[in-house]
Design a protein around this nucleic acid. Sequence first.
DNA 1: GTTAGCACTCAAACGGTTAGAGTGCTAACA
DNA 2: TGTTAGCACTCTAACCGTTTGAGTGCTAAC
Lengths: 354, 354
Amino acid sequence: MELDERKQKILYAIIQNYQETGEPVGSRTISKMDALNFSPATIRNEMADLEELGYIVQPHTSAGRVPTDKGYRFYVDRMLAERAESDPRKDLQLPAAPMQELLTKRIDRVEELLLKMAQILAANTNYTTMVTGPHSRRNKLKFLQLSAMEDRKILAVVVLGGNIVKNNILEIDEELSQETLLNLNFMLNNRLNGLSLEEINLGLISQLKEEAGGHIGVIEKVLDAVADTFAKEDSYPIYTSGATNIFRYPELTGGDKASELISTLEEKKELGSAIGEISNDSESHQDIRVYIGDEVPVDSMKDCSVVTATYELGDGVQGKIGIIGPKRMNYQKVVDTLKGTMHQLDGIFKKSEE
Amino acid sequence: MELDERKQKILYAIIQNYQETGEPVGSRTISKMDALNFSPATIRNEMADLEELGYIVQPHTSAGRVPTDKGYRFYVDRMLAERAESDPRKDLQLPAAPMQELLTKRIDRVEELLLKMAQILAANTNYTTMVTGPHSRRNKLKFLQLSAMEDRKILAVVVLGGNIVKNNILEIDEELSQETLLNLNFMLNNRLNGLSLEEINLGLISQLKEEAGGHIGVIEKVLDAVADTFAKEDSYPIYTSGATNIFRYPELTGGDKASELISTLEEKKELGSAIGEISNDSESHQDIRVYIGDEVPVDSMKDCSVVTATYELGDGVQGKIGIIGPKRMNYQKVVDTLKGTMHQLDGIFKKSEE
DNA sequence: GTTAGCACTCAAACGGTTAGAGTGCTAACA
DNA sequence: TGTTAGCACTCTAACCGTTTGAGTGCTAAC
């Protein structure tokens, strides 16, 4: 073990104190704590060791100590381990009242639910929150609906599991009679409903074209629209809320940092990678991940930490929630809040599937 | 006339210089200009007068002068008047290349077009841009489409003029057969297509209910959804872009100003009022309006100016564009850019209606 | 292994001085 | 009478030396 018991305690104390105050913490402060009743000099010796090991640094010679990324990593790992050992129910923080209300009141429009969720989490934690819309690659087609709009234009509404609805306006090469359209509608739904993207393969596609008679162009456009709905970036949009919370933390607003961060959030580029793409199945969807400082794969967030969770809306429809805050964020509270929210969410969707 | 020719020139010069530098401008600076070849002392006398009249102020005793809201108002009015007099084509700034490309390439999804427009305008002007989605109260119903989703749930897709599409998932009290649904579909479209919100009145509604036989509950829900599409806030969403441009202007970022401004933009509250609700018909849709400082009806924008324009996508579908910048923004460029964009937009939609 | 004591370092706050930009006023000028 | 040169005055921002206080590292004693 690299760190003996006392060093660990001191490191823990330093980090907690720094999280509360945001100021470098000195040896006197630590020595005053009940659990660590040593003289400042002793603490200083230990701190010097901790610094040598890379867990803390001094901003300048005569200042107190501040945790490094490695320090935070130690702290977070230990906290997560403790949480995992203890009774999972004990510190499962119940979502705050507005969240309770949101989650029990059933909302059909997924987008609205996700946006509200982001807003409430941001307001609750005082950190910035982002939620990716459900990632639907493994999702299934519920049904589709073609309607005539005007000459050579049809509206294709594609509905996936989890009630993800997307509209596509298609320009086609021929004019279709109401009847033809009805037939196509029937045929396509008959063939495609309940299938996932993978299941709509080349064989099936050529079969469809055959059945469609002359309207191959239309079929192609419709299939494109379906593929789009499954895959296209804006079929899983990203909702953010509480961007201005970063102004609460001076370490995030110096220089151009604030501007860059907010730009990233506004343009919603790179956010997907920040939050971690949906990963392999081995990961439980209750898994909570913490990325600290340089571990975050987005440049403008190198001074932040990001805590992510995966939510599931039944049917294998998954998305991610990310909470972005300063490295000295209250990891404990954030992790518990996310766990609580996920837990509740699961309950709801389990129930509604019965 | 309150201001003689020379005072006007000096005021103009002060404002232009201040716009360029952002620093208070002194008498020496002005006296060096070719058009105003007087000694600093003379200029000083005039400046003292202008200050007494409320057009300019000194931040402190020994500083140069800075325009007041009244000063800007004078400047803008005069500029707009000049623009109106001269050949409108002369200074019609053609939209920058990316905008040209965007506008000639036809985009069917209105939302996408508007968002892109906001982005390009923001990038072009270096100011924050917001675009309200088309305001559709006077719009007409193109068609609607009911589809069965699962027991007791139907999807109602409502399409308005300008191809504004909105999905509504309705929970209904009874189970409907495919056939009934088809009939309702047919009946509703038959009755409602082409009507505006006002034309769907109580008489028509009770008639519909009669025709629908037992399915009054369904009809009510569908009509609610239609009304929603016409009226509900998110049927004319607000797109913003370039929020971080405000960091270019120190006068907007002091204290909590930046945070408040970005909050306003993020939450998209109050933005509607900032941009000015769609007003009476008397206003030409080519009309450009400038709100300076306190004239902006949003608290967090009291240090900004907002320039708005109304766009039209044919069919009387209108929306607004607003450019938000510091009071010392380049009004001329902004006004010309907006005019150019509106002009081009009109061309496109006129053409596509033929 | 722990602690008291002490010299040392450094950032931040304080205060006085200076430099410079710009003003208002007055008196002379055209 | 309008314009200008000259001058004293004001105020901010920058500069600089000093002080203060928090915190350290080291050493020697317990």
